[in-house]
Amino acid sequence: MDNKVTQKKSLLHSDAAQKLLAFGSLIILFIVFSLASPNFAKFDNIVGILLATAVNGILALGVTFVIITGGIDLSIGTGMTFAAVMTAVFITNWKLPIIIGVVGGILMGGLCGFINGIIISKMKVPPFVATLGMMMATKGLSLVISGTKPIYFNDTPAYRQIAMGSISGIPNAVLIFFVAAIIANIILTRTILGRYDFALGSNEEATRLSGINVDAWKTAIYTLCGLFFGLAGVLMASRLNSAQPALGQGYEMDAIAAAVIGGTSLSGGEGTILGTVIGAFIMSVLTNGLRILSVPQEWQIVVTGTIVVMAVYLDIIRRR
């Protein structure tokens, strides 16, 4: 009988409860801002929020995979910028077709992720340090390659359509984010990559002793994260119609925060894509709502920081 009681309790404390909590917070934020300002719930503003979520959301999707292994990737923000700069180099400087530039940009992200993975799994450098190094390296490389100046896509107006074109009022960037999220969810829940992702974060040594090539899978996961920030870079460049080499630092923290708010455990083994998507929305609704209420930007950051800590604290209470 005791057994059943425990099971019921754990059901209450399950992922479902986590999602409900995060989703509930999102709804409450939405209602509060709608009541506080008539401009908040307008179609244009909602589209703005969705658009703002796309880039950060895609970064968060990638880093969710890494955090589930118990690792971290600090290079996603500047890695994104590096991918954007490379895309601009391919398309504007080298006059390559747009599609090659886009695929090339995504692959450059993947390459950064792959190098992260090799350094972490083969050279045994802790993820924090390895990706901190990659963060600095990609930041520097973006500045070097671009000559510290933005590269514009003025000769290829079609490039801007990748993110800013729209289907029935919804910008492509948003649709791409949703498709990316669906793919990420399939990878995480239905494929062996996803299974080993959780296995690594749950007990890496046991995974290794089960005969699984831990180094290869870990490298694959960091590479996947790289492909996601490569995609984010392509969208970012498209949205701004330019690659801005000085941008990017700080984005990694917003993305990590989104994943954590969504219930991804920094100690590994736990996390969902839906949670991360909701987490990303909470971040952008908060930023947008506070701006509409004319809260100064400096204070917006303070509030966001507080919310991140509160969200994780709520999660800790829930687990007791």
Binding site: R195, F198, A199, G201, S202, N203, A206, T207, S210, E270
Partner: peptide
């Protein structure tokens, strides 16, 4: 040497 976050079946056939 189990993966506590995974299910019984997932652990057996890891």
């Amino acid at each position: 040497n189990l993966m506590p976050h995974l299910t019984v079946a997932q652990n057996i056939f890891i």
